[in-house]
């Protein structure tokens, strides 16, 4: 056995979720339910923004938990539990994105859920050009603009941004989740911030609402 009992206990003490997962490995159903309750919202938050469809994101979250459950007997606490489960989530989401791309599907929410239309850049251009009056740009619309800006990011940039912003992960942890080098993550996040600034900068420069004039 590569990981000793004392090491496992030490990691479990440092990360209570590791202890829960060890209990799941001992077929403790309550421990599994606790993990679901702790992680489902976090996973859904990241995956929904990755995929762009809440329904698909829920399916992926369920698939992640299914994989976690099936891996319960072979689980070895080699990293933080959150890193481990987000690595699974990243792999499942990446497969889903490839599958969607193969089927040439458009993202469901990008065109249907928001008031800005199907093409994010086009929608933002409309706002900037004043074709959508500034008074209509309320908080919900700002939220929509930010979402569309995030949608313009290449999917690896998007994942790195979401993990950094909402999971508070550092470069090394994101690198582990995305199976990249920390240096590559650093470049990814740098480019992502640059892209976001390019899209959202006009709004920042003109206050919280875009300048209709």
């Amino acid at each position: 056995m590569a990981v000793g009992e004392s090491t496992i206990r030490r990691r479990a003490l440092g990360d209570p979720d590791v202890l829960l997962m060890i209990e799941v490995g001992e077929d403790n159903a309550a421990a599994f339910e606790e993990l679901v309750l702790r992680y489902q919202a976090r996973l859904l938050g990241v995956i929904a923004h990755m995929i762009g469809s809440r329904d698909s994101a829920e399916d992926i979250v369920q698939e992640v938990f299914l994989r976690v459950y099936r891996a319960r007997k072979s689980y070895k606490p080699g990293a933080k539990f959150s890193t481990w489960i987000f690595t699974i989530a990243h792999n499942v989401a990446a497969n889903a994105i490839k599958s969607i791309a193969r089927r040439h599907e458009v993202k469901l929410d990008a065109g249907s859920s928001g008031p800005m239309g199907a093409n994010p850049l086009e929608a933002i251009a409309l706002v900037s050009s004043g074709q959508i009056p500034a008074r209509q740009i309320d908080k919900l619309e700002t939220r929509e603009i930010v979402r569309l800006a995030v949608d313009t990011l290449e999917h690896r940039q998007r994942m790195a941004v979401l993990l950094s912003k909402f999971e508070g992960m550092g470069y090394a942890e994101i690198a582990e989740v995305m199976e990249m080098s920390p240096q590559a993550v650093k470049s990814l996040l740098f480019r992502a911030r640059g892209n976001l600034r390019e899209v959202l900068g006009p709004y920042l420069n003109h206050g919280t609402r875009p300048n209709a004039g």
Binding site: A41, L44, G45, V61, Q62, L66, V146, V150
Partner: peptide
Amino acid sequence: VWTMLDELEQPQVGRKLTGTTLEM
């Protein structure tokens, strides 16, 4: 720009998702 990301909507998880996940 980074702070603006706070505006992103965080989907709420309903009991239904928890229930169906555990059932599945």
